[in-house]
């Protein structure tokens, strides 16, 4: 019973979501919207769980004086400060919340994102090798696409010579072609696989074949 009821709910919810996709009537769409609302409500309550988890993790760390515990005080202080500023004084333009968002969150987020540039460079240097024919093709395509994305750099290398001007004019087209055809073809192949995998995963969860998430093992069978 402990297993059957969740399986039944899963099946019914899955069937409903699949059917409503084909029903444009207001009734179906309202029910769909209502289910989405339920999801949002559940998510809102789950956020409480999340906050509780966050605070508990850091309070425990401070209480037990674990390694790097002072950072946990910073995390908790930041959390409390944003809650007080946001709820207490609003979040409109010019408010304290807006100021912290613009001058703390924006630069911090941008900084983390910018790490990508450094990591791409070091990863490319470390692993991008012409080890085989396929890898060489990939390497050449990557260099062409990169140059096509930054045609100005070709002028830096070749100057305003004939070759420089020709590459500067035509490299973006070659890059665009690679993006538009070979890349999209490969991508579509992956999308087909992913779509089928999604359908199959959804089916096996709806039909109760996969139930490891409910604590019943996979389809009643053990794990190896």
């Amino acid at each position: 019973m402990k297993l059957q009821v969740p399986l039944l709910i899963t099946f019914l919810a899955g069937v409903f979501m699949a059917v409503q996709f084909f029903v444009p009537h207001e009734l179906g769409q309202t029910a769909f919207g209502e289910l989405l609302n339920w999801g949002r409500i559940v998510a809102a309550f789950a956020l409480v769980l999340g906050i509780q988890s966050l605070l508990r993790t850091h309070v425990e760390k401070i209480r037990r004086r674990r390694r790097d515990w002072p950072y946990s005080t910073v995390a908790i202080a930041s959390f409390v400060m944003m809650v007080v500023i946001g709820i207490g004084f609003g979040s409109d333009r010019g408010s304290g919340f807006d100021w912290v968002f613009t001058h703390v969150q924006v630069p911090l987020d941008a900084t983390m994102f910018s790490l990508l540039a450094f990591f791409i460079a070091s990863a490319a240097f470390r692993t991008f090798r012409a080890r085989s024919t396929e890898a060489t093709l990939l390497l050449v395509a990557a260099v062409v696409v990169m140059l096509g994305r930054v045609p100005g750099s070709l002028i830096v290398v070749f100057g305003h010579s004939g070759a420089g001007e020709w590459l500067h004019t035509n490299m973006p087209d070659v890059s665009e072609w690679i993006m538009n055809f070979p890349s999209v073809a490969g991508k579509r192949g992956i999308i087909f696989g992913v779509a089928l995998g999604s359908i199959a995963t959804a089916l096996r969860i709806m039909l109760g074949i996969e139930r490891s998430h409910l604590g019943g093992g996979s389809g009643g069978g053990g794990d190896e």
């Binding site: 540039a117 791409i120 460079a121 490319a124 240097f125 470390r126 991008f128 090798r129 012409a130 390497l139 990557a142 260099v143 990169m146 140059l147 994305r149 930054v150 100005g152 750099s153 830096v156 290398v157």
Partner: peptide, 15 residues
């Protein structure tokens, strides 16, 4: 552009 160029130089040098 300059950063891309540097990455391309790094890849070529690495190879």
């Amino acid at each position: 552009s300059i950063a891309h160029l540097l990455i391309i130089v790094l890849v070529i040098a690495g190879n």
